[in-house]
Simulated assay, not measured.
Amino acid sequence: MAGYIFDFIVVAVLIIGITAINGVLTNGIGEKIFGGKRHSDISNHSAGIQSGWKNVGGKKQK
C-alpha cells in the first residue's frame, strides 16, 4: 500500500510540474513570437495608472 501511495504522489508531482513548466514555456514563446515590439506596453500602462493608489490590506509598515 505504501508503494502505491508513493507512486501516486510521484506521478501527481510529475504531472503538475510538467504542466506548470509547459505553461511558462508556451507563454514565453508566445510573447517572443507574437508580442512584437510593444509586448510590455499593456503592463507598463497598467502600472502607470496604479502608481498613485493606496495599498490596502496586509500589515502596516512602521
Rank of each mutant, 00 (worst) to 15 (best):
I33W: 02
A47M: 08
I18V: 14
I49R: 13
S43P: 01
A47K: 09
S46N: 05
G36Y: 05
I42P: 01
I21L: 06
R38E: 14
R38S: 06
G36E: 05
K32A: 14
T26N: 03
A47Y: 05
F34E: 03
D41L: 10
S43C: 03
I49P: 00
G28T: 00
K32I: 13
S43R: 15
G28Q: 05
T19V: 04
I33P: 02
G48E: 11
S51E: 07
A47H: 02
T19E: 01
N22M: 08
S40R: 15
G35R: 02
N44H: 04
K37R: 14
I18M: 13
K37I: 07
G36V: 03
G30P: 00
G36F: 06
T19W: 11
V24I: 08
G23Y: 08
K37L: 10
I21Y: 03
I18W: 15
K54L: 15
F34I: 07
E31V: 09
I49L: 15
G17D: 07
D41W: 08
S46I: 14
T26M: 05
Q50D: 07
L25H: 04
I33V: 15
G30V: 08
Q50E: 09
G17C: 03
G48D: 11
F34Q: 06
T19M: 04
G28P: 00
G17Y: 06
I21S: 01
V24D: 00
N44G: 04
Q50L: 14
T19N: 02
V24E: 05
I18F: 15
I33Y: 03
G30R: 08
I49N: 09
D41T: 09
W53M: 10
G17A: 10
G36M: 01
T19G: 02
S40M: 12
A20P: 00
D41P: 01
H39N: 15
H39P: 00
I29C: 08
I49K: 13
A20S: 12
I49H: 05
L25S: 00
S40H: 12
F34N: 14
I29E: 10
S46P: 01
G28D: 02
S43I: 14
V24C: 06
W53G: 04
H45D: 11
F34Y: 11
G35P: 02
I49T: 14
G36W: 02
G35E: 04
H45L: 12
I33D: 00
T26K: 10
I21V: 14
H45Q: 12
S46W: 12
E31T: 09
A47V: 03
I21M: 11
I49V: 13
N22F: 12
K37N: 09
I42Y: 12
V24G: 04
G23T: 12
K32V: 14
N22C: 09
